[in-house]
């Protein structure tokens, strides 16, 4: 039954994907992207990846849609019409794409079937990770254990990539601080949805709950699905929602640009500092066992701290990126 449902979802996903590429209206394409993200998140959940489903739903369907819409507002909503002619180059493109797709499908026949217990993925590292999570770290969520402790280097790298991307966007678009005078009255454009009473009031009602969910996901990540990446995205989503409802200025007065920059850098630094603390206390980089008398307890402390670092960085970067786009739209 679950298999059947998964196949149904994936078929819908394929149709959505083709519709995204086919449509000339970019607005429609972005909306369809949101639908595709939700479909893929549901598929992830069916494939036992609760953490990933949570991340994809928060980021793919939520924040990415907002960013694309912001970019569309500044460029154009439609692709330019081109002459409909089957030139050799378009035939070549179709040909290459088709042939590569067939090759990939042909190659899948050598793949282990879905859920096969003898697949190479299940054979070597997976049992070790699951056993060691029980013995060395003693938290229920193996995903958090692998993410924060066993593969801490990887995660540090990813956090730095997120931080760098955020800095890159700010370099390209500016922080928007210089373009507007402090305390200037709200113009029509950046007043958000102030005219729309019902979405505004209900949105304000929901924002505390979204924030609460964000913090729950952050601090409950060791026991259930969750962790810094998801929590950062959810908290960023609540701030972005506030900015959309109340106007960007208000959101900036709640969390000023300086605080956002400090969050971006501070979270990454916190992660690195925990790693260095391991060296100082006489062990290896990112080895949390020495952070406390009891090695297991030390692991708990380390995971808690670096998850906080991740959450702070991700939230800071996503909110800053949104503000950079929004400042352009209203400038």
């Amino acid at each position: 039954m679950t298999t059947l449902f998964g196949i149904f979802l994936l078929t819908l996903l394929m149709i959505t994907g083709m519709a995204i590429v086919h449509t000339r209206n970019l607005f429609v394409a972005v909306m369809l992207m949101g639908i595709a993200s939700l479909l893929i998140a549901a598929s992830f959940f069916l494939l036992d990846a609760a953490d990933v489903a949570l991340t994809e739903a928060a980021i793919g369907a939520g924040i990415s849609t907002v960013l694309f819409l912001g970019a569309l507002a500044l460029t154009s909503e439609r692709e330019r019409k081109r002459r409909r002619s089957l030139s050799t180059s378009s035939l070549l493109q179709f040909g290459i794409v088709g042939v590569v797709a067939l090759i990939v499908i042909w190659a899948t026949f050598d793949q282990p079937r879905l859920g096969s217990p003898s697949a190479p993925v299940q054979a070597h590292l997976t049992p070790w990770y699951i056993e060691s999570t029980r013995d060395l770290i003693d938290i229920p969520n193996a995903v958090t254990a692998v993410l924060a402790s066993f593969r801490g280097y990887d995660t540090l790298g990813e956090v730095v990539v997120v931080f760098t991307a955020g800095v890159g966007v700010l370099f390209l678009l500016g922080t928007g601080a210089s373009s507007r005078a402090a305390g200037a009255p709200l113009s029509e454009d950046n007043a958000g949805l102030r005219h729309y009473l019902i979405p505004r009031i209900l949105g304000r009602l929901l924002i505390p709950f979204i924030l609460l969910l964000g913090f729950y996901v952050q601090f409950h990540g060791e026991y259930g699905p969750g962790g810094g990446f998801q929590a950062g995205a959810i908290i960023a989503a609540s701030v972005i929602l506030y900015a959309l409802l109340e106007g960007e200025q208000r959101a900036l007065s709640v969390i000023p640009q300086g605080v956002l920059l400090a969050m971006m850098a501070g979270g990454t630094l916190l992660f690195g500092a925990v790693g260095v603390a391991g060296i100082v206390l006489g062990s290896n980089f990112l080895d949390y066992s020495v952070l406390s008398e009891d090695p297991v307890n030390g692991q708990h402390w380390g995971i808690l701290l670096i998850e906080m670092g991740i959450g702070i960085t991700v939230a800071g970067v996503l909110i800053s990126i949104f503000h950079a786009f929004a400042a352009r739209a209203t400038a």
Partner: peptide
């Protein structure tokens, strides 16, 4: 509860 709060709001925003 959240569905009952958000879906009419979304419908209202869409129609408006």
């Amino acid at each position: 509860v959240f569905l009952l709060l958000t879906s009419p709001t979304a419908a209202n925003a869409l129609a408006a």
